[in-house]
């Protein structure tokens, strides 16, 4: 495994830790989109169907378990924890996330590497992950006072995707037959969706002011 891939995974892991830390320590999920979190839980379930059937490495299995476990615990906290759920911005988080699920499923049935169940679910998870951040970005735009942890969480998620792209470029040039158009294009789309956010993130960082996306 190359350093870019490891850095990508670690950034992803840290983003989840930042979010859980926010939920645990200040007992608040303000500014976090439950829609996005539910989509991520669905992404991991459909992607890691092979977790107990194909052994890749101990690292791989542990990371899969962590992403599955953390995504479900975040959803649980936001839905059922008696204190945390009160801070959920339900009225603002109105993105109709099921409108993303069906098109992704249809696209996965039409465009995939192999027409098998696991392969289609894997492809579906790639398409869904690419757009899963949209409810969160919409919520961020609507929220007036976004706290720093929420902004860092979104930034780390975007950074993870950017690092994965660098990892793919590296692997393309160093590994024979490493060619995965579907993964690359969905990853690229996902990163582009962060473009606007990144722009305002760096602007707020440069000017040392609180990030707020323009309406």
């Amino acid at each position: 495994m190359n350093i870019l891939r490891l850095a990508g995974d670690m950034t992803h892991l840290i983003s989840v830790i930042v979010l859980l830390l926010k939920i645990h320590s200040i007992k608040s999920c303000a500014g976090i989109s439950l829609k996005t979190q539910e989509l991520y839980a669905l992404v991991f379930v459909s992607r890691y169907l092979n977790i107990f059937t194909d052994f890749i490495s101990l690292y791989n299995t542990i990371m899969k378990l962590i992403f599955l476990g953390t995504s479900f615990s975040i959803v649980w906290y936001m839905r059922y924890h008696k204190i945390v759920r009160r801070s959920y911005d339900k009225d603002q988080d109105t993105f109709r996330h099921y409108f993303l699920v069906l098109p992704c499923l249809i696209l996965a049935l039409l465009i995939n590497e192999r027409f098998t169940f696991k392969e289609i679910m894997w492809t579906f998870s790639l398409y869904l992950e690419a757009v899963a951040i949209l409810p969160q970005l919409v919520l961020l735009q609507r929220t007036k006072n976004t706290d720093n942890l929420t902004v860092q969480y979104i930034f780390l998620l975007g950074a993870y995707r950017a690092l994965y792209i660098l990892n793919w470029i590296y692997r393309y040039f160093t590994e024979p037959d490493y060619l995965h158009w579907i993964t690359w294009i969905s990853g690229l789309v996902q990163t582009i969706l962060y473009g606007d956010f990144f722009y305002y993130y760096f602007l707020s960082w440069k000017n040392n002011v609180k990030l707020q996306l323009p309406a």
Binding site: N50, D54, M63, R114, T116, E119
Partner: peptide
């Protein structure tokens, strides 16, 4: 060849 290709990434 495995039914399930690539998949060493998360």
């Amino acid at each position: 060849e495995a039914e399930f290709s690539l998949k060493d990434e998360l």
